[in-house]
Design a protein around this nucleic acid. Structure first.
Length: 109
DNA sequence: AATATGACCATAC
DNA sequence: TGTATGGCCATAT
């Protein structure tokens, strides 16, 4: 049988979902970070696009643990996201910003 | 195949 | 510190 595809480890959406699902409870990760671990550095937008595609509620994918690089939350879902994060013990500032404590590790608080 | 859109990111002002 | 600009990547038309 003739070869059809060179080598695609996994579809973009698959790797992204896998990474997001691997984020521990009470911890957060940035879109860029997810894209990076998914093997597509710089594909942060693609990550956001994928997360948007999945059902807004009752998801097996903890999309709310994915935030922006600067610690802010994406406007369209900021409200729901902040609520869910707080439910996990993640400290979210009033302006919808997560402390870097969970984003990276140590550095400052 | 080209254009347009978005839950983004880094840099410049 | 906060707003504006260009760039990057993955889909939908």
């Amino acid at each position: 049988m003739p070869p059809k595809k060179p080598a695609a480890p996994l579809p973009f959406s698959e790797t992204v979902m896998r990474q997001v699902r691997s984020i521990p409870r009470g911890e957060v990760r940035s879109y860029a970070q997810v894209a990076l671990y998914a093997g597509r550095p710089g594909a942060a937008r693609g990550v956001g696009r994928e997360l948007k595609h999945l059902p807004g509620q009752a998801t097996q994918v903890p999309w709310w643990r994915v935030i922006r690089s600067d610690g802010t939350l994406a406007p369209p879902v900021a409200h729901e996201q902040a609520k869910r994060l707080r439910a996990e013990g993640v400290t979210v500032a009033q302006r919808g910003q997560v402390f870097r404590v969970a984003l990276k590790d140590r550095e400052d608080g």
